[in-house]
């Protein structure tokens, strides 16, 4: 609890994303395109967490995400929590939600799928939100969490 308070208090206006599994940090950066942002961003990783073992935290100054944007990370960080910061204090908390459809984030695990053979972006229906199972809109095969690869 202490380290959380510390990290949160470090930004004035913006968003803190907490409870990211440490090994998903780079996927989160990638999905939210944080590398393209001009804002000040702080990354912390390998904090001990009872829930996740080792977790990561991202703090983004001056940036607020839409629900749609943020739900994209649910595939790799289903327990992530968002703290919205105004004037150094948490004004809102959100949890991420797995959306009904996923477009262009994950790779279809079927090597014979059109999305792996032509320039076609992937599209999935989320058939199991709890365990993350994605049904490909094109080849109709299921990609499960074990085989999930972020593009």
């Amino acid at each position: 609890m202490k380290d959380k308070t510390l990290s949160v208090s470090a930004i004035q206006e913006g968003t803190v994303i907490d409870h990211i599994p440490a090994n998903s940090l780079f996927d989160v950066i990638n999905i939210l395109k944080l590398d393209k942002l001009k804002s000040q961003i702080t990354f912390g990783s390998n904090f001990l967490s009872k829930q996740l073992g080792r977790k990561a935290i991202v703090k983004i100054e001056g940036k607020f995400f839409s629900a749609e944007e943020i739900n994209r990370i649910s595939l790799v960080a289903p327990q992530a929590k968002l703290n919205i910061i105004h004037d150094y204090s948490v004004t809102e908390k959100h949890i991420v939600e797995v959306p009904d459809t996923i477009e262009g984030i994950a790779k279809c695990m079927n090597p014979k799928c059109i999305t792996n053979n032509e320039n076609v972006s992937t599209k999935f229906k989320v058939v199991d939100k709890q365990n993350v199972a994605l049904k490909c809109h094109y080849c109709e095969k299921i990609t499960d969490r074990k085989h999930l690869e972020i593009l």
Partner: peptide, 22 residues
């Protein structure tokens, strides 16, 4: 290739009948 007929139906101006996609 699997899913090719679905993709074709999205880019085609006329209906597609799938006669087997992988």
């Amino acid at each position: 290739i699997e899913g090719s007929a679905r993709y074709a139906s999205e880019v085609s101006g006329v209906p597609i009948v799938n006669a087997g996609d992988g």
